[in-house]
């Protein structure tokens, strides 16, 4: 795959080395120190840092502002952008805002329904969906034009990504859907948290069979479990999450004070196994409000030090 942007993430992926990304959730307030503090803890162990966009529909400090903070620290942000809250004017406008700070990566998402968050009585927008946002960013970048057709002076140069959940239903369209996202313009994929490794490997096999892993970089998503309580919550309450009974049992059989350690161990073992899966181009480690654990996961998984591609 040829390099199309100045993204460090793209360079590492194109070099054939396994990439490592992680993410920071912005605070529920305006404290300017939160994002830099979280980023400091992980910056030497990851290639790029995703910033979530009002995840689970809880109102937070905006993703773009947090990405700018990372950029000003000399780090590589991945701007997550959901189509739930903004119409095509606002989306294109924010894309240009990101480009003006030379933010190099974007992840196009539809976003959780607003009913999960603190504004359950609000409207959603969904002027366009996540696939159409991929098309929009690619159109702005590659054609140098707005959706309305006018030329963009200094078009955005973003490396364009999408999420994919190999565990959502119906399973049979999960690989066709990946193909659809690639056709819409996705250049990298970050997957939903993987706990069911067998199912993920089957999904990857189907993706390889269709030649999709030659067309897109797939970063396997991992979230370490802090406790058996978290495992049960993820299994039973989070839509589209597949946590096998064996994982829950392993944590349940571990004394409470050792469960967090065991969760990290499961995560590291998963990475070790998935490193061997052909087509896995890297890892996206989502340690939810547990960012300080990312360095040890990365080190234990043998992914440290990170490559220098500047």
């Amino acid at each position: 795959m040829t390099i199309r942007t100045a993204s460090k993430l793209e360079k590492i992926l194109a070099s054939g080395q396994l990439a490592v990304t992680s993410e920071c959730g912005p605070p529920r307030g305006s404290d300017p120190e939160v994002i830099p503090r979280k980023a400091e803890a992980i910056k030497n162990h990851v290639d790029a840092i995703n910033v979530t966009d009002n995840q689970t529909s809880m109102t937070r400090l905006c993703s773009l502002a947090a990405c700018i903070r990372l950029k000003l620290m000399g780090l590589e942000p991945v701007l997550q952008m959901v189509t739930r809250d903004r119409n095509r004017i606002a989306l294109q406008s924010d894309i240009l805002g990101a480009a003006s700070f030379d933010i190099q990566n974007i992840l196009c998402l539809s976003g959780d329904h607003q009913s999960f968050g603190d504004c359950a009585r609000g409207q959603n927008v969904y002027d366009i969906d996540s696939l159409q946002l991929l098309q929009t960013v690619r159109h702005m970048r590659d054609e140098g034009k707005f959706l309305g057709g006018d030329p963009i002076i200094r078009p955005p140069r973003l490396f364009v990504g999408a999420a994919e959940n190999p565990f959502a239903d119906p399973y049979e369209i999960r690989v066709p859907r990946l193909a659809k996202k690639i056709a819409a313009g996705a250049e990298f994929i970050q997957t939903q948290c993987i706990y069911n490794l067998d199912k993920f490997e089957d999904w990857m096999r189907q993706a390889r069979d269709r030649g999709l892993t030659e067309q897109v970089y797939i970063l396997a998503g991992l979230t370490p479990m802090k406790s058996v309580g978290m495992a049960r919550y993820m299994k039973n309450r989070v839509p589209g999450m597949d946590v096998p009974d064996a994982v829950v049992k392993r944590l349940a059989d571990t004394p409470k004070e050792k469960q967090a350690e065991e969760g990290i161990k499961i995560c590291v073992e998963s990475i070790q196994r998935l490193k061997e899966v052909k087509g896995v181009a890297g890892f996206h480690i989502m340690a939810i409000e547990w960012e300080e654990k990312v360095p040890e996961i990365v080190e234990q998984a043998g992914l440290y030090p990170r490559p220098d591609v500047a």
């Binding site: 739930r84 999960f116 999420a163 959502a168 239903d169 119906p170 839509p239």
Partner: peptide
């Protein structure tokens, strides 16, 4: 979500995430 190219990741056992 009025998604024209679905389903989103919240589709579970034929039901909607909401």
């Amino acid at each position: 979500k009025r998604i024209l190219n679905g389903p989103c990741g919240g589709s579970s056992a034929g039901k909607c995430e909401i």
